[in-house]
């Protein structure tokens, strides 16, 4: 009898400690993931304005939600894993990881998309590699499963090669930067920061090429979270669109603002030469985005990066939250839809 009372006592204390204390009772937090691993753990563009102006914090304060920004070193593939084990609610990552995740059964929905991201194919400064064709048999560093993985497959295919003709070294973020500086890899996609530091030179870039080579990043949400908290998702998307709107007002301002991530202003200007600020902040999953998704999926399939392709239009995209947000904010006509080549479609 005494034993039973003791057990009950322990259980009561346990419940008092873990059940009633607010810190332990299902803490209210919205967790957002981004690919990270190089630069500062803050975002540029629309996300940057959302962070700098505390838009989410203000919006969700009254509901008692904390906002958590996670910069994940293993990049898009890491975001997928975190979504799969419920460590993230939202994530913003590149085309191949989003599609690969969905193809692998990850239950996510794409809410918005952004386009126009660039990458540069770098080689060490003293390298003799001059063209894509010279990459044959060379060690190329790439974040396996990130958007530059399909980009690499693409540019190799353009030159009559495949990923099998090079040595793929799985490496990301600051490890990649070190490896190219020490000549441990012969080439790889990276940012202009390495050129600025004098350790690499560019042999090919997406800047000035057809837009199909550029990245599509998507805001995705865990389906279970979406079902549980449609209202939170709605307000979340609205605040994000607000951030995008602020970013879309003045290109020079925004490019200057983006240096908060650690990038140099001149690099931001060079990367976005010829792209309007409306284009790089446009959030709709329009014809251009879905077409590019399909193309990336096909490239990925042909190169063995996605095994089970799925119907991109059906069962993956949910634009209703974005459209509602645009309407509430009176921004329905702020951004045009874009065609395959990145030109605005006139209404």
């Amino acid at each position: 009898m005494k034993k039973i009372i003791n057990i009950l006592l322990v259980m009561a204390v346990g419940m008092a400690l873990f059940g009633i204390t607010p810190g332990f009772a299902a803490e209210k937090v919205i967790r957002i993931g981004y690919p990270g691993g190089s630069g500062r753990p803050v975002s540029a563009g629309g996300w940057g304005y959302v962070q700098a102006k505390n838009l989410f914090e203000e919006e969700f304060k009254k509901d008692g939600y904390r906002i958590e920004y996670n910069y994940i070193k293993s990049q898009g593939p890491g975001c997928n894993e975190a979504l799969a084990n419920n460590s993230l609610d939202f994530s913003f990552h590149g085309d191949l990881p989003v599609l690969a995740g969905r193809s692998g059964g990850l239950k996510i929905k794409a809410l918005t998309a952004s386009r126009g991201g660039n990458a540069h194919l770098l080689v060490p400064t003293n390298s003799s590699i001059k063209t894509i064709k010279d990459l044959k048999g060379k060690r190329v560093g790439v974040g396996v499963g990130t958007w530059t993985h399909t980009l690499l497959a693409r540019v190799l295919n353009d030159n009559g090669m495949t990923l099998k003709d090079i040595k793929v070294i799985n490496i990301t973020g600051s490890d990649f930067e070190t490896a190219i500086a020490t000549n441990d890899i012969d080439a790889g996609f990276g940012s202009r920061a390495l050129v600025r530091r004098g350790v690499a030179k560019i042999i090919w870039t997406t800047v000035g090429k057809p837009v199909k080579y550029q990245s599509i990043f998507s805001l995705v949400v865990r389906e279970a979270f979406l079902k549980q908290h449609p209202d939170i998702v709605k307000r979340f998307v609205k605040m994000y669109v607000k951030g995008l709107y602020l970013a879309s007002l003045n290109k020079n301002e925004t490019l200057k603002f983006n240096t908060r991530t650690g990038s140099a202003l001149q690099d931001n200007i060079d990367d976005n030469a010829g792209q309007s600020i409306k284009y790089i902040t446009a959030p709709r999953i329009d014809g251009q985005v879905t077409q590019l998704y399909k193309e990336v999926q096909l490239v990925a399939k042909n190169n063995g990066l996605i095994r089970k392709p799925f119907d991109v239009d059906k069962d993956f995209i949910d634009s209703s939250f974005l459209e509602a947000a645009l309407k509430e904010l009176n921004l329905e006509n702020h951004w045009p839809n874009y065609d395959y080549n990145g030109n605005p479609i006139k209404k």
Partner: peptide
């Protein structure tokens, strides 16, 4: 570059559980 362990690393990054 190749090998059964490497197949697993790549599959993990491509979410091929």
């Amino acid at each position: 570059g190749e090998g059964i362990g490497n197949v697993m690393v790549i599959a993990r990054r491509l979410f091929q559980t």
